[in-house]
């Protein structure tokens, strides 16, 4: 995302609605976004689509700062959206800016 563009922060729910090591889906006109919470209570958002075969990343196993896609076990970085490990360099899922404010999850959507 270009930092010069004004980010439109959208409240999508309470931070506690996403349990540690899990994900929730947010439906948008641009497709679903997956909101993740790691074991260390870090939050990330990426489009809910594996770069490999479009698998729903929100249904994978969250480990460290990565998600294992439920369809074919690609590992995707929650920080960069890049495929990791053996599949590194083979694809990337767009990330979405996210911040937590007053216990709410805000996504930076400019559409």
């Amino acid at each position: 995302m270009n930092a010069n563009v004004m980010i439109n922060w959208t409240d999508v729910g309470a931070a506690i609605e996403v349990a540690p090591q899990s994900a929730r889906r947010v439906e948008t006109v641009m497709g679903a976004i997956a909101v993740f919470r790691t074991v260390a209570d870090e939050y990330y958002a990426v489009f809910d689509k594996c770069p490999h075969k479009g698998g729903p990343l929100s249904e994978g196993i969250v480990h460290g700062r990565a998600i294992a896609c439920p369809l074919h076990n690609w590992s995707i970085s929650l920080e960069s959206g890049e495929a990791l490990g053996a599949d590194a360099g083979k694809g990337c899922t767009p990330t979405v800016p996210l911040k937590i404010a007053d216990g709410r999850i805000l996504l930076g959507l400019n559409f």
Binding site: T10, D11, V12, G13, A14, V18, V26, T28
Partner: peptide
């Protein structure tokens, strides 16, 4: 879903 923003940017209930 946690939220559905597909129709008119519906804000979720706090």
């Amino acid at each position: 879903p946690l939220a559905d923003l597909r129709e008119g940017f519906t804000q979720p209930e706090p």
